[in-house]
Design a protein around this nucleic acid. Sequence first.
DNA 1: TAAATCTACGTAGTTAACTACATATATACA
DNA 2: TGTATATATGTAGTTAACTACGTAGATTTA
Lengths: 159, 159
Amino acid sequence: MNVIDASGALAISTRLQRLADLLRKDGQMIYKAFGIDFEPKWFPVIYTLFHKPGLGVVELANEIGYAHPSTISLLKELENEKLIRSKKDRHDERKRLLFLTSKGEELVQEMRPVWTVMSDAILELTNTTNNLLKAIAETEAGFRGKSFFERAKPHLPRK
Amino acid sequence: MNVIDASGALAISTRLQRLADLLRKDGQMIYKAFGIDFEPKWFPVIYTLFHKPGLGVVELANEIGYAHPSTISLLKELENEKLIRSKKDRHDERKRLLFLTSKGEELVQEMRPVWTVMSDAILELTNTTNNLLKAIAETEAGFRGKSFFERAKPHLPRK
DNA sequence: TAAATCTACGTAGTTAACTACATATATACA
DNA sequence: TGTATATATGTAGTTAACTACGTAGATTTA
């Protein structure tokens, strides 16, 4: 065992990020192997716009839990790929309403079986004694209730 | 519930990364609140060199599970901070052996109580029905046994 | 109804990891 | 022992998210 695993809790963000990277890279390979030109990072945008067409940029960002500039850069790529389009909101000149293009809609249909395969593989992979998907949800909930910082704060040395 | 949470498994890398970010940022705030000039990302290097002084660059990278160029850039920062130093290996001219400086050693002693507080907070946060730390370890182990890609591969359409 | 504030979107620059490639030294083998 | 291969380190550029800040239009309020 290396000293980092031994340090347990302290290296948690490192380990989460590494696992995220591993899964994203394999996700990329899986799309490729199925002959589909799609990047895992596009998933939240495409999936959300498929289910909720007509969202604005910030609404979409909130929905997928990203900062809006991150969302904007994904949207740019997806517009270049002709997978999404936008139009001005007639009632609010500031707003851009976002939709899948028909190419985007078709790609979603093509990806559906791949998503099923991926989803099954992830469920298999994470369905261990401590279920990772549930553990994430539970930890996120705990964090919302009282953040990591708030849990550490009471132990600050008094000035 | 937003559509991404509903998509469950498919957005897993996104969610892992977001949680990693949250924890890293709070970690940063905690060091600051304790008046310690230290970044969470330095932890794996400092902690490992504290426990195993004299490692080479690649040995250290393997120990902390990073690619060696990532490790090199952390080492540069830590050398600027005067927290680590290196010397040539007498028996292998290619190798740089890495050590904490005395400033580094002192900082470790200063951080020990903070690490205890952080570790307790993380354990509290992650000790839910499905323990996140254990779930990560279990999923990593499952992945090593058979990767995400390998689990999806059998379902490829035949050519 | 004019001014102040808020909201939606966008740009620029940062961060913390990565891969690909280059170079120098060490080791193995013909 | 000279050549091929492997290993240790380093550099350059990429990626996928972020924060800070700016601007324009919408809404609230004095």
